[in-house]
Design a protein around this nucleic acid. Sequence first.
DNA 1: AAAATCATGTCACGGTCTGACACCTTTGGT
DNA 2: ACCAAAGGTGTCAGACCGTGACATGATTTT
Lengths: 201, 201
Amino acid sequence: MREKSRTLGIREEHRAQMLREIQGATLDLVEEQGLDATTIGDIAARVGISERTVFRYYGSKEHALMPGQQSLIDTLVCSESAHAEASGILGDLLAVCRELFALEVAQSDFRRISRLMVREPEMLRIVARQERNLVEALSSALVQRGPLSPIQALLVAEVVTAAWRVAWQTFARQEFDGVESDPVELFDETVRELGSLFPRA
Amino acid sequence: MREKSRTLGIREEHRAQMLREIQGATLDLVEEQGLDATTIGDIAARVGISERTVFRYYGSKEHALMPGQQSLIDTLVCSESAHAEASGILGDLLAVCRELFALEVAQSDFRRISRLMVREPEMLRIVARQERNLVEALSSALVQRGPLSPIQALLVAEVVTAAWRVAWQTFARQEFDGVESDPVELFDETVRELGSLFPRA
DNA sequence: AAAATCATGTCACGGTCTGACACCTTTGGT
DNA sequence: ACCAAAGGTGTCAGACCGTGACATGATTTT
């Protein structure tokens, strides 16, 4: 009994294992037979559990396929900025995204999802929908602790997610086409082009 | 029979009428009982048609609730720009949005949807998903007929839709709170704040 | 008026997702 | 070691969304 954390960890570990297993099976199946043709029944069968249990781990089919957005949300919402103006905060958030992008790109799941995104345009719509959570969480966090107006906070949140999405989508296409390139440089180029959309008057 | 165009118009007119009727019923029901509680069956019953027929007019429940995005897509994709650089094209597109925003705001459906958006956050996610079509159509149109790189075209399309969404969301909140304000000025302020996110270095 | 076209209703089906219940395992305490 | 509470799982039932096939009646064309 001296180790409560360990006993508690058993279930958590099992849960984490299950989460990974279900997502892995989902990715396998979508790669094999496409998104539309892949049902919850297929996923459950491959993992060896019941359909009902799949929904106990992921709230929806979409979530099982791409649960990764949560880490982006957490990282950005928790990141503090030293700046007080909207433009400075935006710069800091983009820098955080840059780091996280480099980390994500190193994971095989991220690359598998990226390749799938090119084949299945529906997945981009799923991403866009999920990233609403990011915009809401980030903008409300900004408005609550910063000197930003609601409209500024919304814009910052929208622009950050837009940059992430563009960099990701571009990376996905290159990955799909087999082009080798530095993902961080790709992200930097995205931010550079974004800035050049608003030239000094 | 001397007027063929009139006979052709009967079905089209009936169809347009049906489209309006179904959307109206959907708005009514969502206002009354919320989005989750409103089913296709409810909508069909209120209009006096079968559930199957509802899907012959709108591909989904979401589409029946907010079919308006299509006009935004068509307008932006068809708009030509005199400029060759990305920033100029972006400016032109934002100007087109500004005009369209003024027109939309004048329609009662747009205002009803706006008020509902505040009550039903799910609708914002639906909008975000639908606007994927805009980003795809607009960016591919830009890349096809303009001197923009794929990454530039994507960024321009994303930024335009982000600005539209922020202005709309802000308008919706004001509308919901009963604040009277000039919508066009609101849109202009959004664009102004957007520009100030990227100060002259 | 006859034929082709279109709109609608009905029926049937597969798929997503949720709630309720029973069963078994893990957990924490004695 | 035993027990009770809590958590995970399967089964069952059900609501809802969306699609295909077919028959029927109205519209349009010839």
